[in-house]
Design a protein around this nucleic acid. Structure first.
Length: 103
DNA sequence: CACGTGACCGATT
DNA sequence: AAATCGGCCACGT
């Protein structure tokens, strides 16, 4: 990953590296992107992901393992996670000790 | 340049 | 255990 990439570009690269069946957190992505305190911006980037990108946006949850999305988006994320074998409770929480990805 | 806004986080009630 | 509070910082206006 190139240091003069923009913040969104860095986020894209990191996202692409998350293996199927694993998740990571907004804060971790921010740290990997070189801005440890920019977790909220990671959320902002994901929200504005280019139309039709194949990036696994659904593999990002908050530090507690909770899906930070609401409404129909929440349902889509849960569906996508379950589809790759990740167990998600009905309230939208996953077991971080089991699924969290670190390099 | 100066705000206001968050798909957040950690510490503190 | 749950709610609240500040801080955070990229981005848009």
């Amino acid at each position: 990953m190139d240091n003069n990439d923009s913040f969104p570009q860095r986020v894209y690269h990191i996202l692409a590296a998350i293996p199927e069946g694993c998740v990571t957190t907004y804060g971790d992505i921010a740290a990997l992107a070189g801005s440890p305190r920019a977790a909220r911006q990671v959320g902002g980037v994901l929200k504005r992901l280019p139309e039709g990108s194949r990036l696994p946006w659904h593999r990002v949850v908050n530090r507690l393992g909770l899906l930070s999305l609401t409404g129909p988006d929440f349902l889509r994320q849960r569906e996508a996670l379950v589809a790759e074998g990740i167990q998600v409770s009905s309230n939208g929480q996953i077991d971080m000790a089991r699924y969290r990805w670190r390099i």
